[in-house]
Computed example of a mutant assay.
Amino acid sequence: MELRYGINPGQAATAEPVVAGDWPVRVVNGEPSYINVLDALNGWQLVREASLGLGRVAAASFNHVSPAGAAVAGDLDEVAAGLYGVRGGGVGELTSAYLRARDADPKSSYGDFVAVSRPVDLELAEVLGGLVSDGIVAPGFEAGTVERLSRKKNGRFLVMEADQDFVPPREEMREVYGVRLTQERPEEAVGPAVAGEDLRLGMVVARYTQSNSVCYVRDGMTIGIGAGQQSRVDCTRLAGAKADIWWLRRHPKVSGLTFRDEVRRQERINWQVRWCEGDLTAYERERFDQALAEPAQELTSAERAEWIVRLDGVAFVSDGALPFRDNVDHAQRHGVRSIAEPGGSIRSDEVAKACSEYGITLTRTGVRLFHH
């Protein structure tokens, strides 16, 4: 398969199956780039594994080979439903799973690659028609959906179909700078030893997120993912800040922001996020005020703090062992009540002690989930 280009424009690139003719995905519309293929392969594996392990429809929103968000089907709250112009209790499982995944970090999901575990239906195709996305991978497409999706991006929207029956080779190979690396393919992350749907979903998400990675999960959806950080505690803090933003977007002063009719959906979302972050530049503040139909009610530091402490019932998953208790100290600030991590660090006793102090249930999985 000739690819549009490699990781960067100007780099010629191709893709071919390990076993001649045995493709895990096929192109239905559009022309993939190198990164598109990586997003499709990682995204499909994530939603397939999550759906099989949890018995529910799963979706993910990928950007730069890591999920910006992932979720299983469930209720959409009023904030998410309002932003995407749907009725929270009136959408199908596939649409709810994707919108819950996208709403985890909607700023990072701009121009995402969508992955869903069930064939695309007309409802999801219509919803995607109004969002900025680059492509989708799914195990099939109902009648009329490919035609609807192919109208996006002037016909360049990438549609890829996954083979549900594909069995990957036992060994995986990569060539870097003249060196060929070979390793066994890891076992699937979800297992019966881990109790709780949120922790199990978090393990699947961590497996397909660039390491170091952690994720915060609540009610079957990620609300904060930290990817690719050299320091694990930096990853924990980054993902925690995203979880706080997700929660602050539900504050009445934020969800109640009224924008001018001409302001597009993604702009409204971006302004909500920036307003929650609380550090608008003078230039941004001027543009923000211009985008509003009515002046914003200021969100004070006290109101912000009082709202954040209400966040509760959050699960936290780390792809590697927590090396210090500081990860627990930071995680508990974001409503974490359960943690899953491999264990085995030289300070594991300190990590366990911190969990006990905060009333956090700790699960040692014995499984490292690094992904590079």
Rank of each mutant, 00 (worst) to 15 (best):
F157G: 09
V146M: 12
R260E: 08
S133R: 05
M221K: 14
Q183S: 14
L248F: 00
A162S: 08
L181D: 04
D165A: 15
G178D: 05
G144H: 13
T222S: 12
F259S: 07
R207L: 12
Y216A: 07
A239C: 00
P169W: 09
D165C: 04
C215P: 08
S255H: 04
G144C: 13
S211P: 01
R170F: 06
P192Y: 03
Q272G: 04
G155M: 09
W275T: 03
A195H: 06
S133C: 10
T236Q: 01
N154P: 00
F157C: 03
A162Y: 06
P186Q: 08
R156T: 05
S133P: 07
D234R: 07
T209Y: 08
Q210S: 11
Q266T: 13
G228V: 14
G256S: 10
P186V: 13
I245G: 00
E197A: 14
V214I: 05
W246Q: 02
V137W: 06
E172Y: 15
R218G: 00
G144P: 15
L181F: 14
T145A: 12
R260L: 06
D165F: 11
K242R: 08
V254S: 07
A193L: 03
T258R: 15
V204D: 01
V176Y: 07
E175D: 13
D163C: 12
E188D: 11
I136L: 04
R218E: 06
V167H: 06
T222G: 12
R151W: 15
G240K: 01
E175C: 14
R185C: 13
T258F: 11
A243Q: 03
D261N: 12
F141Y: 15
G256I: 10
R250I: 11
W247K: 04
G220A: 03
A189W: 05
I225Q: 07
P168H: 03
T236M: 02
E175V: 15
R265A: 07
R156V: 00
R151M: 15
G196R: 05
K242P: 00
